[in-house]
Design a protein around this nucleic acid. Structure first.
Lengths: 176, 176
DNA sequence: GGGAATTGCATCACTCATGTTGCATGTTAT
DNA sequence: ATAACATGCAACATGAGTGATGCAATTCCC
């Protein structure tokens, strides 16, 4: 059951237009077996969307983003998300499902709450746009997820947070 | 001709599995007309990949990334790319075509050369990984391209470069 | 061991995107 | 005006993915 969902996540993550046949093959079962669990392709995708999104939300929540110190929460959230999301690609795409969309919006709120806490704590600059920053944070995680050349998840998370906070510049006054 | 390619870029950018019908509709022509220009879907995609990639490469090259001062080149490249790429999504995905792949690799090299020049000039930290930084730069442009809420392209480019160089943090010593 | 459930396999009907063609219409250049 | 060309439209053939079903083999539980 979850084996099929995992295979579907992997397969659809690479190619959103993958066939049921390919998904079944990735799961190591016959195509008809997939159809017995999920009546239609649409149903499979909907279930997958909710399932993957819930795992994602759980990973975020486990980092105590609303209570832990902002920097710790930021780092831990990154680690958790990077561990859970092997490919990430799917759960974040267009949600295809209202329930998944709802969960995703909740996570988005949590994330922006965390960033605002970080701002208050003096970790983030006051003049940055929180929405933009959240987008950048997501993009960095995505980038990290698909460029881990054998790198350890912890190191990857450090890279993400470091890049988010410090950027790549020297900070010299020779600004743009 | 280019009208069809533009429509295809828009349509496939949103949904990579879009049908010829949808592309034709977006271009304001009949489906058969599209088939008269491009024998097969595969041919259309291949042509589009090369076409879009060439526009992308031209936009980068026009910023003189190898000769202009690093910061200027970085900013101008960002502006150019953001102007050309309404949706970006397509030309950057898996290239589907060896020729497009070749051009993309060339741009990638140009970009990393620019970043190394920036490093030498003291704009970028010496300890950052250039490949990672390029990935982050791409991700930021992508992020910017799909979150411009009426923002001006110049402002968007400033945001991208600023985020890339400074990040979102305050730089206080209360590091992770 | 007996029975229930699950799976693989073969098969079939159905839908839909793709690609082709013929014909009529409209546009452009000479 | 007329010839060349491009387009829209309708129709058709084809192939592939989808979804359903019957049957035999298997695994698992009592």
């Amino acid at each position: 059951m979850t084996a099929i969902l995992e295979a579907a996540e992997r397969t659809l993550g690479r190619d959103p237009a993958a066939t049921m046949e390919q998904i079944a093959e990735a799961a190591g079962v016959a195509r008809t077996t997939v159809h017995r669990r999920f009546a239609t392709r649409e149903a499979l995708v909907a279930t997958l969307a909710v399932w993957a999104t819930e795992r994602f939300a759980a990973a975020v929540e486990a980092a105590r983003p609303d209570t832990a110190p902002p920097l710790v929460a930021l780092y831990q959230t990154t680690v958790n998300v990077l561990s859970v999301k092997a490919d990430w690609g799917f759960a974040m795409g267009e949600a295809a499902d209202p329930e998944a969309e709802r969960i995703l919006a909740a996570v988005r709120d949590t994330c922006e709450r965390l960033l605002r806490r970080a701002q208050t704590a003096g970790v983030l600059r006051e003049d940055v746009d929180v929405e933009w920053t959240r987008g950048v944070y997501y993009a960095l995680i995505h980038q990290a997820a698909q460029s881990r050349d054998g790198r350890d998840t912890g190191a990857l998370a450090t890279l993400v947070v470091d890049t988010l906070l410090r950027g790549a510049g020297t900070g010299r006054p020779d600004r743009l």
